[in-house]
């Protein structure tokens, strides 16, 4: 304990001033911490786009790779005497794998979310939800490993596909990575629907499943859509699963039984062996910028949907 000052007026005033300064300083430090999130996002944009810039500004880079060429050159052959940077096969590969992942994961995740929020007993829910958190906690490199070592052989024996690693295998493995995202967002949205909605529907004589399908699910539709969008963004950006499970051939065919190469896997597979500042380096950063833009737009849309759901349920 510090003894009380003899002339409290003078020292207390000084003490107060110091305290106020300290409080203000701390507020500034905390504000700076909060700003780190903004700064991080801005720096990501600036530095990924900056390394892609030579495609638009440097004549030397443009001799090998141009923006127009991305969409007119038919092949992706970055390592050769005359490198070809046509990204159409990569876009097709990305689309194919993501489509497979969404086709499998969305119905399963939405139905399971309905089950967890509408039909399951509390005990069942207590098993289901931690299990899905476990699935979410499995590193994507482990899912990729599982797809490569185990799933690929099953799928090949079922479909009789000539290649072991193909878009179907990658898409199915990717759906495991996406399921927890879609499920969690959907389930949150469904549980946010007020009880009174369900009670009103049941009181009017609807059965439980009719209530779930025609009342609860539509009321939560914005949240369900947000879950699907977040899953879509996750699927588009996911790297290790597709890198290990897809076979990585940039073919650009429509069949899911062919090997395919995605934007993310292209970056992961090629960047390590590229000379910094070379055209190939810039092209890979361009692919990264493209990936960033696609997922950014999807995420912003999902955020808007969640806000809308919150307002709608709050207004009800």
């Amino acid at each position: 304990m510090t003894p009380l000052p003899i002339r409290p007026g003078v020292n207390m005033a000084r003490h107060r001033r110091m305290q106020r300064l300290r409080e203000e300083f701390i507020a500034w430090v905390l504000r700076a911490c909060a700003f780190s999130a903004v700064a991080g996002l801005l720096l990501i944009m600036i530095f990924v786009f900056r390394e892609a810039l030579p495609i638009f500004t440097s004549a030397e880079t443009q001799r090998e790779a141009t923006f127009g060429g991305f969409f007119t050159v038919p092949n992706w052959q970055p390592v050769s005497d005359h490198p070809k940077y046509g990204i159409i096969p990569i876009l097709i590969g990305t689309f194919k794998i993501v489509a497979v992942a969404m086709v499998f994961s969305v119905p399963v995740a939405v139905l399971a979310a309905l089950f967890a929020s509408e039909f399951a007993s509390p005990r069942l829910r207590e098993i289901l939800k931690p299990t899905i958190e476990m699935l979410a906690g499995i590193p994507s490199v482990v899912l990729g490993f599982f797809a490569l070592m185990v799933m690929a052989s099953w799928i090949q024996s079922v479909t009789g596909s000539p290649v072991r690693l193909n878009a179907l295998n990658a898409g199915l493995a990717l759906s495991l990575g996406v399921l927890p995202t879609v499920f969690t967002v959907c389930e949150d949205a469904l549980r946010a629907v007020p009880k009174s909605y369900r009670e009103a529907s049941l009181a009017l004589g609807a059965s439980r499943w009719q209530t779930a399908w025609r009342v609860t699910l539509p009321a939560a539709s914005a949240g369900v859509a947000a879950g699907v969008l977040l899953g879509l963004a996750r699927a588009t950006g996911e790297t290790m699963i597709v890198l290990m499970a897809s076979g990585n051939a940039a073919l650009g065919t429509a069949s899911v039984f062919d090997s395919a190469r995605t934007l993310s896997a292209t970056i992961a597979a090629e960047l390590a062996e590229v000379v910094v500042g070379s055209p190939h380096y810039s092209v890979l950063f361009f692919l990264g910028a493209l990936l960033f833009l696609i997922t950014f737009v999807i995420n912003v849309a999902a955020g808007l949907l969640v806000d809308r759901l919150r307002r709608r349920l709050a207004g009800a």
Binding site: A37, G40, L41, L43, I44, F47, V48, R50, E51, L230, A233, R234, T236, G237, E238, T239, S264, I267, A268, L271, L284, F285, G288, L291, F292, T295, F296, I298, N299, V300, A302, G303
Partner: peptide, 18 residues
Amino acid sequence: HNLAGVPSIVFGLFGLGF
């Protein structure tokens, strides 16, 4: 919100570039 949605490979590019 959007930082949480940036693909992990883009973080890799950012780490290298920045």
